[in-house]
Design a protein around this nucleic acid. Structure first.
Lengths: 341, 341
DNA sequence: CTGTTAGCGCATTCAA
DNA sequence: TTGAATGCGCTAACAG
């Protein structure tokens, strides 16, 4: 047994010095065996050290190591709202991949507030993160982020900065083309809020595709609203109570689409017969709505993988990396039902 | 202008020493002004220091401070899956509250894997977190967590350890009582997987309430399945195709309830007339389903607040802290519609 | 009111 | 193959 702990003294965790003393070696040697280098250690010595570590229940202090190494082996992740399904999925993928590579992730929830986001950046940078992954609400990061490798995961235009984003423009084009292919002529857009950069690209894809087909795309066909179920509901109610009712709608997110479906039910409109719907994101909710949503699927895993690689490697990149998206056909677009149910 | 940076040298961030030199004071004084104490500084001196900090764009190194202070001002948060709506909401609340108190959050996603969870714990503890908040998948934490204040946010029974949880037992009782009050006699249970501790309490509440009312609660009325839409769908399909069909069902989560509603639609059963439904969680999805779900609402904000306070304060607690839940009436339970629509 | 200085726990160069 | 010594950036005695 180890010596009895003298009562009343604060139990301090064992340090490398304690291990060295217990094993009868220098602290350098302990370091060598802990890190498997950079110097070789005689097998017998190594065994003694290992035994001492075990005995003292030694655990390296990552903070001290970080200070010395000038690297915390940690990345920061800042999103507007982790409880959002999309950002949550992103956080999950990123967290798991980072962990597998020995990195911790410091999570910052900006609470949809630019000032708060900036404060989070300052805080994380002060904690010496090796890189920052951010879905930012603003156009500029605070000066503190200057020397931290940063990858943006949002659609804002930031020339010269690295970003990894879904190909929103192409996704919107795919969706609208598909609706046109079903013979729809009056295709509305339920978009995200005016300030949202994702919204800008999705709207552009919608507009350009309609334009190329000679179909209308005037402002009366657009409603911009929050990325929420309630937003989608309101938007659809407004759109569908017009004189010239749309026969299809492209919705900028799955959650909004759930609201759109609720609106259709309320107005006794059959989906897809009276109204075809295609949304964006490809979250699980889309598969379980009534009817199941045809949606543009964003491969979050690939975004996470690409972004993490980018932030951890020094190569600069001038243009954004666009991750391809694909249309997942279910029942709201008007295709014949896949499962002949 | 400051001196030209000699080309080719790695630009190292300014340290406290640089500031001290620039301001013509000692490093201690810089520390005093940065931390507003513990010693007073003459206004003129303070101004010089502030100016130097500004000039050099000085930013304190939180890691060095943490090493010295023996506190990283950080808490760990480990959940089975951040992309889960419930855990995401928890992470959000926790992150925001922690940040407001000057704490960073180290996020660990256990990816629904006990071994991975243990590895995450080891990693975070090594990073000197001041406290650990965890929704754990196992019964025991690794030894590394021994000296870290820990608060469990799950329903597992861990005598002597602190935990903050929703009052699942009472919530289930409220739900079932309500259904009984509507005259339902055959009330089924779609529960979480057998291994889930939440499931155990919700089932107990269901059983005890039925028992007290002299109503049946045999195994043929129970299906245990994943907390997912698909799980709920399968479960309900099985339950509702029995000879003696249930006239109500208590569902252990909102997501499962969405599956139950889908099953009812498929079987041409009207909710709530043919089948009353009450679920558990109170997430946003419950409000936007068709019809909107009556559900037992878990106040995540209060759980987060209570848990954070608990983990940051030293008081031990023997019994779990139960956070009260409440029934939110919507349209699936059989109450007259609130909005006379 | 301010300066000097000793560590916090660790990695690593330089000697041996 | 191992040991001694230095310093990462910071706080807080202690000593003026």
């Amino acid at each position: 047994m180890a010596a009895h702990a003298p009562e009343g003294d604060p139990p301090r965790a064992a340090t490398r010095t304690d291990v060295a003393r217990a094993a009868g070696v220098s602290t350098a040697v302990v370091s060598y065996v802990v890190n498997n280098g950079p110097r070789a250690v005689a097998p017998a010595t190594r065994a003694r050290v290992l035994a001492a570590m075990e005995e003292l229940d030694y655990r390296p202090n990552a903070l001290a190591r970080a200070l010395r190494m000038r690297s915390a082996q940690a990345v920061g992740l800042i999103v507007p709202d982790v409880s959002n399904l999309y950002f949550g999925a992103l956080a999950r993928e990123l967290s798991n991949r980072a962990f597998d590579q020995g990195y911790a992730v410091l999570l910052g929830d900006a609470d949809n507030d630019v000032d708060r986001e900036r404060a989070q950046v300052d805080s994380l940078v002060g904690r010496q993160i090796d890189g920052l992954l951010i879905v930012s609400l603003g156009d500029e990061l605070p000066a503190s982020a200057e020397n931290v490798p940063t990858v943006f995961l949002d659609q804002r235009d930031r020339p010269g900065r690295r970003s990894v984003v879904a190909d929103d423009l192409d996704g919107a084009a795919q969706a609208v083309s598909h609706l046109i292919g079903h013979g729809r002529r009056r295709i509305a857009l339920v978009n995200g809020p005016a300030g949202s950069p994702e919204a800008v690209q999705r709207e552009r894809g919608w507009r350009e595709t309609l334009d190329a087909a000679g179909l209308p795309h005037d402002e009366s066909l657009i409603v911009r609203t929050e990325f929420s179920r309630a937003g989608g509901l309101d938007a659809a109610l407004r759109l569908l109570s017009q004189d010239e009712r749309p026969d299809a709608v492209f919705v900028a997110s799955d959650v909004q689409a759930l609201g759109v479906l609720a609106a259709a039910r309320r107005l006794r409109l059959k989906v897809p017969d009276d109204l075809a719907v295609i949304s964006f994101d490809g979250t699980e909710e889309a598969a379980f709505s009534d009817p199941p949503l045809t949606t543009v699927e964003v491969p979050i895993d690939r975004i996470a993988e690409t972004a993490l690689r980018a932030v951890l490697s020094p190569e600069p990149a001038d243009a954004p990396t666009f991750v391809p998206v694909r249309l997942v056909i279910r029942e709201t677009c008007g295709c014949p039902e896949p499962t002949g149910g």
